[in-house]
Amino acid sequence: MKVRRFNQQGIDAFRQRLSDLRQNPAADPPLDLLENERLTQPVSPELQIQAVHFETKGEAAHYLSLALNNLKAEEVATDSGLWTWLSLLFLDSVSPPTDGRRIIRNDYFYVFEPRNPRHFYRHLLFVSWQILRLAPRCHALFMGTRISSLDAITAEVMQRLYLTRIRCIFEVLERLYWDPVNRRPRRGITGSRVSPGNLRHRLPLRISQLEKNYDLVDLNADQLITLLGEEFAFKSPGSSF
């Protein structure tokens, strides 16, 4: 199938169909919209894509990164119609049916709103693609998580531009918060308890403070970890917060 993008009418129609699916969770997905000439148009240059199934953000990110490789990344990153169309194409991945019924959650998980600072990072396919784009390596904390939901680590990091613009931040995150022995994030890093070095509560504050006094963008991971200070000098990668 050719890759297409929704126009505004198409996005509105998709929102309406999402609403219908909430009312009737057993209904078929509105795949008739995918190639509707009035609601969509092919991207240029022409690209082909298949409705494969993804389990994780990593699978989606790698597939979409290749599939969209011939488009300008800067334009893809703000293309509301494209990402919204992709959500429909991969609806079985981002909202998988269980026993024939699917749960459609808030629109922003499926309808991409690049200019909305509270919503843009919640789009499940976009955020997966964007993480891989920003972090071609050191993305273990993110890539193994399910594509059908927005996990806390992804949300805490990707909503903050002042974090993601620091070039070494993904290496720092992986060195601080990934447990390589058990191959999983360290326990408690996004918990509600404000513990020293916690990713959810302490890291953003500490970076925000450092940003006031240092140009963090080009630091390497060793330098940034040094600046973060004793609070982030964890004794053991496997330890909890």
Binding site: T78, K212, Y214, D215, L219
Partner: peptide, 25 residues
């Protein structure tokens, strides 16, 4: 100004200490 399409553009000038490995402002 790639990717900055809105009407309200804001700029920041930073002066960075080249001798400081931590790039102090």
């Amino acid at each position: 100004l790639h990717g900055l399409a809105g009407q309200h553009v804001l700029f920041t000038l930073k002066i960075i200490d080249a001798s400081d490995p931590f790039r102090k402002l």
